[in-house]
Simulated assay, not measured.
Amino acid sequence: MKKLLLALSLASTFAPLSVSADDFVPAQVINKNYDQLTNTSPRASRLEGINLSSYVVDENGLVSDIEIVATAGQKKYQREVIDYVSKLNYKSARLNGGAISSAKTITVSSQNVHSSFSNDQASPGFFNDYEKASQLIDDKRYDEAKTYITELENEHTKNTIEIVLLAWLKSQHSYFVQDWQSFDEHIYEAFLFRDNLPDQIKKRVIKNALQWFISKQDYVRAYDAIEALGDIESITFSEQNKAQLLAQVNDIYKNSGDINQQILLESEQAVLPLLSKSEVELKTEKPLSKVQLRCENKVVDYDTSAIDKIVISKNDVRCGLLLKSAQAQTVIIKQSGESFL
């Protein structure tokens, strides 16, 4: 018997701006006012998936405009995830006493639970190949390690733990062979879905991701990573440790100039890069099908045929730029102006 569970992670790890509580109140989910989505099947399956969705909560607290902005594992669960997220109800965000539209994100894990066997840990087959590949990377035998990684992906990676462990392993291999595009993809995936990892590996993922985010000038994610270190109960991360890291990132961020990012867009697959500067310009090879500024305190749609400059004020809260394109292309995002995090 298979049961599909959708596990939610609603909390944002980063509160970037000093907005007065009297001015802005974030949208808050209303618990237990929707039906849990469950499926049953006589076929036992270990295949699982994880999706990060971005969506809009309108002035009435209703969810709309759901976009999946990151995914790992089985994509077949995306329709069920969208259906599930659409059932969430909220108390709407409020600004100066009035209800406003707000952007939120949620991570949903589609997990299979069986009465006959456990699916909440890596299988022996996965673990054996994972250990062999890890050792080969340590021994600098990268081509041989790649063989085991491919076997892991094709034969043994099924549940959410295995999916994220594989992303971490791929990031390590990519780092040592200096495949930076692949490293970026896999360390980002491992960081986003790190809650599926054992604490010691989670710590390594966060530390690696923190350094990468700083090097990419992705300062919102860098601050997220610092907060994430403090969320691991089994490790010691003192307030002094946190203050030292924050001071280092603050110094780099405050002295940073323009930020230029290359974003790879797949056909009709939304992305949501987070923004660290007050002005944003886009350079595209082909027309975009959707451009939307999504902040916790406002949502702005842009005419894709006539975008001049996107401006973010110092009072805007955790802003991302949602982008979609009908055709695959590379988009350049230039961030400039004031540093406001």
Rank of each mutant, 00 (worst) to 15 (best):
199 D>I: 01
146 K>G: 04
156 H>N: 12
78 Q>Y: 02
198 P>V: 07
6 L>E: 04
211 Q>M: 05
256 S>Q: 08
144 E>N: 08
298 K>P: 02
97 G>A: 01
294 R>F: 10
271 V>P: 02
8 L>R: 03
126 F>G: 04
239 E>Q: 06
45 S>E: 13
38 T>R: 14
109 S>K: 07
35 D>Q: 10
19 V>I: 15
34 Y>A: 07
266 E>F: 10
18 S>L: 14
195 D>T: 09
323 L>T: 04
6 L>N: 04
159 N>L: 00
289 S>Y: 06
292 Q>T: 12
96 N>E: 06
65 D>V: 06
77 Y>C: 03
290 K>W: 10
186 H>D: 09
300 V>R: 02
204 R>F: 11
159 N>G: 00
310 I>P: 00
233 E>H: 09
15 A>H: 13
322 L>E: 11
289 S>F: 03
186 H>I: 00
221 R>C: 07
101 S>Y: 03
240 Q>G: 07
82 I>G: 03
201 I>Q: 05
30 I>G: 04
148 Y>S: 01
84 Y>L: 08
113 V>D: 10
245 L>I: 01
176 F>N: 11
187 I>V: 09
310 I>F: 02
44 A>D: 15
195 D>R: 09
109 S>N: 10
215 S>Q: 06
125 G>W: 04
325 S>T: 03
213 F>E: 02
9 S>L: 10
